[in-house]
């Protein structure tokens, strides 16, 4: 498992983007190509039925393949473990569907380093959203209130997949919620571990593709169920 993804002169090889992908064949290579000039990329192919893994590899990412689908939380933890094993200094969690902006992610990394932070969390409500459906805005706002109440973190966004973690923070945080409840779990661990965090304004672009792939409102019920039954201790 030793080795690293191919190097480019301008690339920061201590910076790893972790992308969890499930059936993202049509989009993943483009997303990876956007990132790979700047940082190392690991795509965790979460048991996709399509050619997500091959496409990601062709785009220039390292690919770790889950033989069966285990959910986004599980895939992110796999990618983080992989990146740490490769010597990552900072880890960025990044969506596979093209919603996130690479330049903003790099700004977040720069801020994380400059201010010596453990975590920088993307906030679409400090930044901007493009084509965000009203129903989704409502659900996310409700999640923000819930997260504030349960973690005590004074957040403006929740369930935002764009995050930067220092190596130490990535080592300390263990995602045990395999599915979508991992987003709340990461925040509650940030609170419990008393990590030094900041939010950073980001733009989330809701394309037709990302809306079709993204979370549905009905998923919020599943997230609550996951949180209720918890994960292993």
């Amino acid at each position: 498992m030793n080795g690293s993804c191919f190097n480019a002169m301008s690339r920061d090889d201590t910076l790893w983007f972790v992308i969890a992908a499930f059936n993202e064949g049509p989009m993943i290579a483009e997303v990876v190509r956007g990132v790979s000039p700047h940082a190392q990329v690991v795509v965790v192919d979460d048991g996709s039925a399509d050619d997500t893994g091959d496409q990601a590899l062709a785009g220039g990412a390292c690919v770790a393949t889950h033989l069966v689908n285990r959910g986004q939380g599980a895939a992110l933890q796999t990618g983080i473990d992989f990146a740490l094993a490769q010597g990552a200094g900072h880890v960025v969690t990044f969506d596979a569907d093209g919603q996130h902006d690479v330049d903003e992610a790099l700004e977040m990394v720069a801020r994380c380093r400059a201010e010596g932070l453990d975590a920088v969390l993307g906030s679409r409500f400090l930044g901007a959203t493009v084509n965000m459906p009203f129903s989704r805005r409502l659900v996310i706002k409700a999640a923000v209130v819930f997260t504030r109440l349960t973690t005590g973190l004074n957040l403006t966004d929740a369930h935002n997949g764009l995050r930067v973690l220092s190596r130490e923070a990535a080592r300390k945080i263990r995602i045990r919620q395999d599915r979508m409840a991992h987003a709340s779990e990461i925040l509650s661990q940030i609170a419990r571990l008393r990590l030094n965090w900041r939010e950073h304004p980001v733009t989330i672009t809701y394309s037709e593709y990302s809306l079709a792939k993204g979370q549905k409102i009905s998923n919020s019920v599943r997230i609550l169920e996951d949180m209720l039954f918890g994960a292993r201790s």
């Binding site: 191919f6 690991v42 590899l57 785009g59 390292c62 599980a74 796999t78 473990d81 395999d178 994960a231």
Partner: peptide, 20 residues
């Protein structure tokens, strides 16, 4: 959870690297 741990271990052990 156990399945996830197994799948993760395999995924990392058998990771593919682009060219190189």
């Amino acid at each position: 959870d156990v399945l996830t741990l197994l799948v993760r271990r395999l995924a990392i052990q058998q990771a593919r690297f682009p060219e190189r």
